[in-house]
Amino acid sequence: MPPWHRYSVVDYLPAAPAPGPGENSREPIAPATMGPLLIWTLRVVDDVLSAQKETQRLTEQAEQAIGTWESMARLRAYLDQLVERGASVPTRWHKGSTRSA
């Protein structure tokens, strides 16, 4: 029979280190909480990836579009409406600067 069966297993193990930085000192999150958090996290990530893919698709489509006199007139009418309402022109942040959308 191994000696730890006769005595305590603790007698054969090294002393447990005191919790220090990087050690988990709190109770783990309960599975009933972690499950829904994980599901919603995955949904958010899927939404972000879908939005990124759609942005890329629309950008490529816009880059290939050929402007016409009609499209220029529609753009001018749209911008004129923004100015009349005092609204700002849609912009986006791109490589450290603000650009028109």
Rank of each mutant, 00 (worst) to 15 (best):
P3L: 09
P3N: 06
H5W: 14
R6G: 08
R6I: 15
Y7S: 10
S8Y: 02
S8E: 12
V10L: 13
D11I: 00
Y12C: 00
Y12L: 09
L13F: 02
P14R: 07
P14L: 03
P17W: 03
P17I: 01
A18G: 01
A18W: 03
A18V: 14
A18Y: 04
P19A: 03
G20C: 00
P21G: 03
E23K: 07
N24E: 14
S25P: 04
E27G: 10
I29Q: 03
I29L: 11
A30H: 14
A32L: 13
T33I: 13
L37D: 05
L37M: 12
L38N: 14
I39W: 08
I39N: 04
W40H: 14
W40C: 08
R43N: 10
R43F: 14
V44G: 01
V45S: 05
D46I: 10
D47W: 04
D47I: 09
D47T: 05
V48R: 11
V48H: 02
V48G: 01
S50H: 09
A51R: 11
Q52A: 14
Q52N: 11
R57Y: 09
R57F: 11
T59R: 07
T59I: 05
E60M: 11
Q61K: 11
Q61A: 15
Q64K: 15
I66Y: 00
G67T: 08
T68P: 01
W69H: 07
W69I: 12
E70N: 08
M72D: 09
M72L: 13
R74P: 00
A77E: 13
L82S: 05
V83I: 10
E84Q: 12
G86N: 00
G86W: 00
G86S: 01
G86Q: 01
A87N: 07
S88G: 10
S88Y: 01
H94T: 03
H94N: 05
G96T: 01
G96E: 01
S100M: 09
S100A: 12
